[in-house]
Design a protein around this nucleic acid. Structure first.
Lengths: 197, 197
DNA sequence: ACCTGAACACCGTTCAAGT
DNA sequence: ACCTGAACACCGTTCAAGT
C-alpha cells in the first residue's frame, strides 16, 4: 500500500524549497548584501546557483521577481505594525513602527516603492499586500477619531507623513535626532507635530 | 583696436550653448519623453548628437549629469513655491505648490530624489539646491507659529508630508480626489488634516 | 517540465587614438 | 582641449536545444 499522502512533503506554492522560493530568497540576500542597484535577475540566479535563464521558468520577467520580494516586504511591514499596535495599544505606535521598519530595512523599503510595482493592476497580489499595510493607517486614523469622509483623508495624510519621513530619513535628508534622543522618540516627535489651524 | 569684450559672448559656466548645457537639456528631454528608466548617458549623448563618450569630457560619470538635472529641478521647485507664496501669501500655498510641482513633473521629481544624489557630500551644488527648497518648508512652519526647538521638527514634518503625498500620488497610490474636487483643493485637504492630540 | 548556452541589443566605463 | 571608436564587463530578454 502506498503511504498516506503527506501534504507537507510537497511545498505549498511560493513557500517550499522549489527554485521559485529559492530565487526570491536569493534576491533578498543580494538586496541586503549589495543594495537595490545591484539586484539583477542574473545576480539572483547566480546566488541561487542556476543559469541566468532558469528564473524565466518561474517568473515572466524581472519585475515579477521584484514584485514577489516586494510582496514579502509589505507583509512583513504589516506584521511589524500589528505587533507594535498589540504591544502598545496606541495608534501612534503604528506610525513609529512603520518608520522603524523602513529604517531597519532600507533596501527592501526602497524596492517596495521603487519601480512602478505597486501602482498598476499588474501584480494584484502585491497590490493586495500594499492595501493591507494601508489598512493599518486607516485603523490608526479611526482610533484617532476620524470618521466618514474625513477618515480616508486622514489615512492618506498619515500614510504620506510616515512614507515621506521614512523616505527622507533613508536617504539621509533629515537632520539627526538631538543628542541622547532615542530613535523611536525622535520618530514619534516628528509624527506628533501639530500643524497650525 | 579689438572690440570691447562682451561677456555675454562667452557662456557663463553651465548656462551657455556649450556641449555641457546641451547635454543637460538633452537629458531633460529624454527624461520627459521616455521616463527615468530610459535616461542613460548614451541616450543623452545620442539626443545631443555626439558620440557616447563625449559626455565624459564634461561629466565625471553618469551621476554627475543626473545631479546637474536634479539641481535644475530643485531650483525650479523653489521658484515655483516662491511664486505661490508671493501670489497667495499663505504658508499652505507653499505646500500645495510643492505637491503640484511634483505632479506636473513626475519624472523630474523622481530623479531629484531618486538615486542617492542629494544625500552624500558629493555634488555640494545639488545639496545646496535641495537645502534651498527645504528652507521654504522652514519658512512655512515659521509662519504657522513654530519657534525654537520645534521649528526644525515642524519643518521636517511638513517636508515629510508633502514629499510623501507627492511620491504616493505620482505612483498612483492615493485614491482619486472626490468627484468635482479640483486637484489643488484635494491637495490642500490632505495637507490640512489635523492629527488628534 | 525544467534547465542550459549562445546570441542580441542595450548599458557604464576604460583605453588608445585622432584633430 | 575636445571628440571618436573599439573594447570590456555587465544587463534583460529571445531562441534553439538539451534531459
Amino acid at each position: 500500500v502506498p503511504p498516506k499522502s503527506q501534504p507537507s512533503d510537497r511545498p505549498r506554492p511560493g513557500e517550499g524549497p522549489g527554485l521559485k522560493s529559492q530565487l526570491i530568497a536569493a534576491a533578498r540576500f543580494v538586496l541586503e548584501r549589495d543594495g537595490l542597484e545591484a539586484l539583477s535577475l542574473r545576480a539572483a540566479a547566480r546566488e541561487a546557483g542556476v543559469s541566468h535563464m532558469a528564473p524565466y521558468r518561474h517568473f515572466k520577467d524581472k519585475d515579477e521577481l521584484l514584485a514577489a520580494v516586494a510582496g514579502q516586504g509589505f507583509r512583513a511591514l504589516t506584521a511589524y505594525m500589528d505587533g507594535a499596535i498589540a504591544a502598545q495599544g496606541t495608534p501612534e505606535a503604528a506610525g513609529v513602527a512603520y518608520v522603524s521598519f523602513a529604517l531597519e530595512n532600507p533596501a527592501l523599503y526602497k524596492l517596495m516603492f521603487g519601480a512602478k510595482l505597486v501602482a498598476p493592476s499588474r501584480f494584484p497580489e502585491l497590490a493586495a499586500a500594499g492595501a493591507e499595510a494601508f489598512e493599518r493607517c486607516l485603523a490608526a486614523s479611526e482610533r484617532e477619531g476620524a470618521t466618514g469622509e474625513q477618515l480616508r483623508l486622514s489615512a492618506v495624510a498619515l500614510w504620506s507623513l510616515v512614507h515621506g519621513f521614512a523616505s527622507l530619513a533613508i536617504d539621509g535628508l533629515t537632520a539627526l535626532p538631538p543628542e541622547g534622543c532615542p530613535r523611536d522618540a525622535y520618530i514619534a516627535a516628528v509624527l506628533n507635530v501639530k500643524r497650525a489651524g
